[in-house]
Design a protein around this nucleic acid. Structure first.
Length: 341
DNA sequence: GAGTCGTGGCT
DNA sequence: TAGCCAAGACT
């Protein structure tokens, strides 16, 4: 267990966390005409909260009722638990994170516990979650926390942002979920909810824009507790109801105010959302190479790695990349292992 | 700003 | 089936 940290504020298991209703967060974004929404099907989908009706209250109420009981939302998770979960959840579904998260926290209940291990152990414990550089970065973040912050996950947004593997989203998420602070937490779920409910389009832009950040700040409730609750609730709405495909508007607490739905749910028009191919890529080769090293608890000869991919040039490039990333440590005599340092 | 970086379930 | 998608970060 970590040193006592402030309780999580985003969990469904904390009735006291139910915030007071706050009034609309000031005025709507300034690009917005101050008028009632057009009739369904005729709205050009202005950049605003439709009719000025605040979104927080219905979304937070919905969250109170429907939030998943996830381990990192329980008070005992602490800031370290929240942080570990955020690393693992980057581009990875909850269902795959759950078992690895439990094992991770049981083995390394505090940052210092992880920092005391070889980075290769973090990579091994990462298992098949994907993007194993996250494991290395989490290990590096644990080391930095141990050295610079006395072993406690910092509560300061700038200090979080300075840790390896923590970017704009994760810094805001940890500060909000673990410490109850007021931050715009813009992940892919929230961006999609805002794109639809407020902007009136099916999908947000490929990269987060300044306009999205501005909108997110404008929609943030004034008080800390409500803001933290709103961050978790809007994210959950995107994850469970306002999904990328097959959205469930009939279960949505703000369907009546959703600009996209009111506009007749027009299809996405802009540039195609970049797809990801995988078969035959370096990523697939890297994955196979690392899988061999994860499963071996002793150094592995080059010949064993050569088995995973037939094409020598790509195979060598992938292995070099893993070494360059610090995920693989080359030894003498053509042996390889997960990094000890 | 566009590319890169894993993995597996779902449609 | 072959894409599409899942709580991004980093270069």
């Amino acid at each position: 267990m970590t040193a006592p940290t402030k309780p999580s504020h985003n969990g469904p298991s904390d009735p006291a966390a139910k915030p007071s209703r706050t009034p609309a967060p000031g005025t709507a974004p300034d690009t917005v005409p101050d008028q009632a929404p057009a009739a369904p099907g005729t709205s050009p989908a202005g950049e605003r909260e439709a009719s000025g009706v605040p979104l927080h209250a219905p979304v937070i109420d919905w969250f109170d009722e429907h939030a998943r009981d996830l381990p990192w939302r329980r008070p005992e998770a602490g800031a370290w638990g929240v942080m570990v979960s955020e690393f693992m959840l980057q581009q990875t579904p909850v269902s795959r994170v759950l078992p690895v998260y439990e094992q991770w926290l049981a083995r390394w209940p505090r940052p210092a516990d992880l920092a005391a291990e070889a980075p290769g152990e973090a990579v091994r414990a990462w298992g098949r979650l994907g993007y194993p550089r996250r494991a290395l970065r989490l290990h590096g973040a644990a080391a930095a926390i141990t050295e610079r912050h006395g072993g406690d996950v910092p509560a300061d947004h700038a200090q979080l942002l300075a840790l390896p593997g923590i970017g704009e989203y994760t810094a805001a998420a940890v500060a909000s979920f673990a410490y109850g602070q007021r931050h715009a937490v813009l992940d892919t779920n929230v961006r999609r909810v805002f794109a639809r409910a407020v902007t009136g389009v099916q999908y947000p832009p490929n990269a987060t824009t300044a306009a999205e950040r501005k909108l997110a700040r404008a929609l943030l409730p004034d008080d800390e507790a409500s803001a933290a609750r709103w961050a978790a609730a809007s994210m959950e709405l995107g994850a469970l109801v306002c999904t990328a495909k097959n959205e469930s508007c009939h279960r949505c607490p703000i369907a009546a105010q959703c600009a996209w739905r009111l506009a007749g749910k027009p299809a996405h028009d802009g540039p195609p959302r970049r797809g990801q191919t995988y078969a035959g890529t370096d990523r697939q080769v890297r994955g196979r190479l690392l899988a061999v090293l994860r499963d071996a608890h002793v150094p592995v000869p080059q010949s064993a790695l050569d088995q995973v991919w037939h094409e020598p040039v790509q195979r060598a490039r992938a292995l070099d990349g893993l070494v360059a990333d610090g995920l693989v440590e080359p030894l003498a005599d053509g042996m390889y292992r997960l990094p000890l340092s």
